[in-house]
């Protein structure tokens, strides 16, 4: 049994990772909620968000704003805008025209789109095949509490991630757009007959979900100090798994699923001999157990019959 401090440390690291996973998972679950689709390009939208953030940072540095307090918010805003627009475009090209056909068609279309996004970054981004160092924007250093090392940078990442989740919760629960999203998720036909514009609500949902993926992408860059064009593959699978564990269609389920996945990964690394090599094996084994014994997820009502 490893010392308690190590477990605590790993749990904390797990929550960190989990926040990023959760942000990706919320997108999956929102898309499934409103349109009953699984958007398999979403992982690559997450990657695109990281690259858009990096590009914005490079541009800001060139403009002499690299070190300013504005750098971080502007980076997030630019990346959210890029992924939001690409996300809405993805929905209009790969999802909406295929409504009414087999869900497999949407699966194929979004998988293909993910490939297009990934290859585009590889080909068109300067030296796109290489991992890109991500600038350190957050305060370095840290402190120790009860044998657990806490870095300021990690606290900031955690704070930004949690703030994004709270913002989503408020938007969904409080705003007119949020009411439309919830109504469409429950019953699109009835929602339309209450005056809800379906197309606009679906656009808003994809903008929101894709924007969250950009936040996750930048946080991932800040955490690992590096981004890579293939990061969306694992990021997407983990985000989707987290959404499935939590119950597809349930936003809070996606958040819990993301946190659970992160903590599973890191505690597995601490509890099992050579665990860090097996962390994904353990986490995905748990995903499979969920799919077998609780296919609708922790909070899920809709079953995953579509794909």
């Amino acid at each position: 049994m490893p010392p308690l401090e190590l477990l605590l440390q790993q749990a904390l690291n797990g929550v960190m990772l989990g926040v990023m996973y959760a942000l990706v998972a919320v997108g999956f679950t929102l898309f499934f909620g409103v349109l009953d689709v699984i958007h398999f390009a979403h992982g690559d939208i997450f990657m695109l968000g990281a690259f858009a953030g990096l590009t914005a940072l490079v541009g800001l540095k060139a403009a002499g704003l690299g070190g300013s307090l504005l750098a971080l918010p502007l980076t997030f805003a630019a990346a959210i805008l890029v992924t939001g627009v690409v996300g809405v475009a993805a929905e209009r090209v790969c999802v909406k025209p295929l409504a009414g056909t087999s869900p497999l068609m949407t699966l194929l279309a979004t998988l293909s789109l993910g490939l297009v996004i990934r290859e585009s970054v590889l080909i068109f981004y300067p030296r796109g095949a290489d991992p890109k160092p991500f600038p350190q924007l957050l305060p370095q250093g840290g402190f120790e509490a009860g044998g657990v090392a806490i870095r300021y940078e990690n606290l900031a990442i955690l704070g930004i991630g949690l703030a994004a989740m709270v913002a989503v919760d408020r938007v969904i629960k409080g705003t007119k757009m949020g009411a439309a999203i919830r109504a469409v998720a429950q019953d699109p036909e009835a929602a339309q007959m209450m005056g809800v514009n379906l197309d606009r609500t679906v656009d808003a949902t994809f903008f929101l979900g894709s924007g969250l993926a950009a936040v996750a992408g930048i946080l991932s860059g800040l955490y690992y100090s590096e981004i890579h064009f293939i990061m969306g593959i694992t990021g997407g699978v983990i985000g989707f798994s987290a959404a499935a564990i939590g119950g597809l269609g349930n936003v809070y389920g996606a958040i819990v699923g993301g946190l659970l996945f992160g903590v599973l990964q890191t505690t597995a690394a601490a509890l099992i001999p050579r665990g860090s090599e097996f962390r994904d094996v353990v986490a995905f084994a748990v995903v499979m157990l969920f799919l077998v014994f609780k296919p609708s997820g922790i909070f899920g009502e809709k079953s995953v019959e579509r794909v």
Binding site: G174, A179, M194, G195
Partner: peptide, 16 residues
């Protein structure tokens, strides 16, 4: 019931 009032709601994200 708020969903029923959807079309009549005037405040958006900015107001929120």
């Amino acid at each position: 019931i708020l969903i029923g009032m959807h079309a009549g709601r005037r405040t958006g994200l900015v107001d929120f």
